[in-house]
């Protein structure tokens, strides 16, 4: 029952396929640390949530934020500070970090949503650079270039120093975050997000205060990005300037575009691919991460703009369509064809 309901996160696919995907997704989520180095598995999980958080903005609402490192990173620092200073269980610290990210997002969103397209991207980038500058200067709090070190993995006295066990302690937070994103996308609010993406002026004419909706999506997205950044910081035991650097913002955009934005599954896939690739290149001693991800980005944009997930889904749908037409002609004019919904 729950599975069938959850499985609507791939609306538009047939139910068996949806449940199958969900099962595969869950098996992967739980099995990852068995098949790879657990810290890498945790990186994949954290980046997957980060990428999905951005997808709410980029894929569903049509807003390219090029400054999401500000939220991932500010939460990484805030989570670390809460964990170090209070010694509270790590999920509380992560939640605190996510709230800091959301609070930071509110003024940034209010100042940037009036711009759209490339201008919006530039304004968000500028704010993220401001956050980077502050993190770099405010050494007493962030540790400057040394980063914030020695973040504990406190969890009701359990020993989580082994990353294998920590992965399972952190996974519920990630899954809750993903579930939250799915809830938002498939809600009345999610419909308005897509409406804004498709035609802003029309949404306004229907009485929707578009700017307020954009601020709301932005803050929700930042909260989820903060959840991901907090888990990442606890997992690594430190938060560094890298977390608020612009390349982090760029990386999460690449994950979305590679996987397929506006699909939720796509960004998860994109995160997995990019993290594994970086890990492979690093262990192989090839110092060309930027070059390789850059190439992947260019190839994706030029050859399959829907991204991997979007392309596969498109192929599945166009193969299925002839059957649907035949079914429709057999005299069921009242039946609703599967709505062509995103996600």
């Amino acid at each position: 029952m729950i599975l069938t309901r959850l499985a609507t996160l791939t609306n538009g696919w047939n139910p068996a396929l949806r449940i199958g995907l969900l099962v595969i997704g869950l098996v992967l989520a739980f099995g990852l640390p068995w098949v790879m180095y657990p810290p890498v598995a945790l990186d994949i999980a954290a980046w997957a949530l980060f990428a999905v958080a951005l997808d709410l903005l980029l894929g569903y609402t049509g807003m390219l934020s090029f400054g999401h490192a500000a939220f991932w990173g500010s939460s990484a620092y805030a989570t670390g500070i809460v964990a170090i200073e209070t010694g509270l269980p790590f999920p509380v610290a992560v939640l605190g970090g996510a709230l800091v990210a959301a609070a930071l997002a509110l003024p940034i969103a209010m100042l940037s949503v009036r711009r759209s397209g490339i201008y919006f991207a530039m304004v968000t980038l500028a704010f993220a650079q401001l956050v980077f500058f502050i993190a770099n200067q405010w050494r007493s709090v962030t540790g400057g270039e040394n980063g914030l070190q020695g973040i504990p993995r406190e969890f009701f006295g359990l020993d989580l120093s082994d990353s294998f066990y920590f992965y399972y302690a952190a996974l519920p937070l990630i899954l809750l975050g993903l579930l939250g994103a799915w809830r938002v996308v498939h809600s009345p609010f999610g419909r308005v997000m897509v409406a804004i993406r498709e035609n802003q002026a029309r949404a306004r004419a229907l009485g929707y205060p578009v700017d307020r909706y954009k601020v709301q999506v932005f803050v929700l997205s930042a909260f989820l990005a903060g959840l991901a950044g907090g888990v990442y910081a606890i997992g690594h035991g430190f938060a560094s300037l890298q977390e608020v650097y612009w390349t982090t913002s760029g990386k999460v955009v690449v994950m979305n575009i590679l996987g397929g934005m506006g699909t939720l599954w796509g960004p998860v896939l994109g995160a997995g691919i990019i993290v594994l690739l970086e890990d492979y290149l690093a262990t192989a001693g090839i110092d060309a991460v930027g070059l390789v991800t850059g190439l992947i980005f260019v190839v994706t944009v030029l050859l399959f703009r829907r991204g991997i997930w979007g392309t596969v889904r498109h192929l599945v749908r166009s193969r299925r369509r002839p059957d649907e037409r035949a079914a429709a002609q057999e005299g069921e004019p009242e039946s609703r064809p599967a709505p062509a919904r995103q996600g």
Binding site: R183, V184, H186, S187, P188, F189, G190, R191, V192, V194, A195, E198, N199, R202, A203, L206, G207, Y208, Y213, Q216, L220, R336, P339, A340, R341, Q342
Partner: peptide, 28 residues
């Protein structure tokens, strides 16, 4: 909204009229 169905269009308008579009925690 090119990608949305006719029903989704009208639902959007009705939901706009009722001012319930902000509910992100509810199911569509």
């Amino acid at each position: 909204f090119e990608e949305l169905t006719l029903a989704e269009h009208v639902e959007l308008a009705l939901q706009g009229r009722d001012g319930t579009g902000y509910r992100f925690w509810r199911s569509d």
